[in-house]
Each structure stands twice: as C-alpha cells, then as structure tokens.
Simulated scan of single mutants.
Amino acid sequence: MKAYKRLYELLSEGLYRFTYSMVRSAEVAEEIVSDVFIKVWQIRSKLSEIDNLRVYLYTIARNFSLNYLARNADSRVIGLDSLSSGFLVEGNSPAEIVISADLVNQMRRIIQQLPPQCRLIFQLVREEGLKYKEVAAILDISPFTVRNQMAIAIQKIGAAPLLKDIFSSLGTYD
C-alpha cells in the first residue's frame, strides 16, 4: 500500500497534465487519472512483469483519454483552463518581471497553437521530462517523429514575434 501511495504521489500530477491536454476538462482528467490508478491496483500482482511502469501508466492514460474522446465526440466541452507552461521565471527588476510575464504568456499562447500531436509531444518532453523513446512508446509513434515534432515546436516558439522583440531590445537576438 505504501508503494502504491508513493507511485501515486510521483506520477499523478504528470498524468493529470497529460490527460488534461487531451480531454480539456479538469474533472474528466482527474477521473481518468483515478481510473489509471484503479487499473494499477487491479493488476498489482502483474506489475513486476512490466518493463517501464511510467510508460505503461501514460499509455493507459492515453487509451482512457482516447476512449473518453470517442464516447463524447459530439458533446465535448472544451475547458477554459490554460495549460501550465512549466516554466519558472525569476525577475529582479520591474522591467525583467514585465518581460518575463510577457514571455511566459507568449510561450503559453504559442504552445496552445501548436498542432495537437506536436503540443502533446512538447508537453511530455519538456514539462513531464520524458525521454523521446518513452514518448514514442506512449503515443505509439517513432522516436524520429518525436524528434521532428520537438524541432517544429521549438522553431515555432523561437520564431514568435514577441520573443524576437524582447530579445532584440535586450541586444541578444540577431
């Protein structure tokens, strides 16, 4: 029971963000994460046979999310909650604080505008800290696809007009 609780503490927040990015509902994401851990409890005697438990749990969460989306395709409600960018910004002067806030807001908007698969891959790699191979296993795609989608995401974030303006005003962008 202690190991189960520790597993929940370690992975529930990341699984929540992952499922939320797919279903766009806080309540549904919480329910799916609960269902994932119920499933883990049900198969606890077979957990030793699983090579990578983290990938396994994210795969279950993906499947539960896709099942939810398929069942509710016509009645899907998109929540207004914004995605957490996962960035920590510290500013010392008022100018740095304003630049940091603008930068974080711009990055959030850009991340939200990425194509769905690209956004999901970016979040799993940058915010959840998963490796390309782990993301590929979770999403059932090639690691090269993960790499390419990350390159697209980083290129779009770096090409944002506000980011160029901020860096050029600091004299660090050419």
Rank of each mutant, 00 (worst) to 15 (best):
F122V: 12
I157N: 04
Q155T: 10
D102C: 14
A61M: 12
R108H: 04
A137Y: 00
L162G: 03
A3C: 04
C118V: 14
Q149G: 01
R71F: 12
A136D: 03
E49H: 07
I110E: 14
S21C: 14
A29F: 02
Q112W: 01
K156I: 07
R54I: 14
R24A: 08
S65Q: 10
M1K: 07
I152V: 12
F37V: 11
K164G: 02
L47R: 02
I111Q: 03
I157W: 01
L103T: 13
N92A: 13
Y16F: 15
A73D: 09
Q112V: 08
F87Q: 15
V89T: 15
L170V: 09
Q123L: 13
L83Y: 06
M150S: 04
R126G: 02
S12R: 04
S85E: 15
Y56C: 08
I152K: 07
C118S: 13
E31Q: 13
N105A: 15
A153S: 08
S12K: 04
I121F: 00
I99P: 00
P115S: 15
F87E: 15
S169M: 11
Q155Y: 07
L53V: 10
K39G: 05
S48T: 05
D174M: 04
R17N: 11
M107K: 12
S12T: 02
V135A: 03
A153K: 01
L10V: 07
F87W: 15
L47Y: 01
I32S: 04
Q42N: 09
E134H: 02
D102E: 14
I152M: 06
S93V: 08
R44W: 02
W41L: 12
I154W: 00
A29W: 00
C118G: 04
N72C: 13
V28Q: 02
K156A: 08
I60Y: 01
A137R: 01
A160L: 08
A159G: 11
A160H: 11
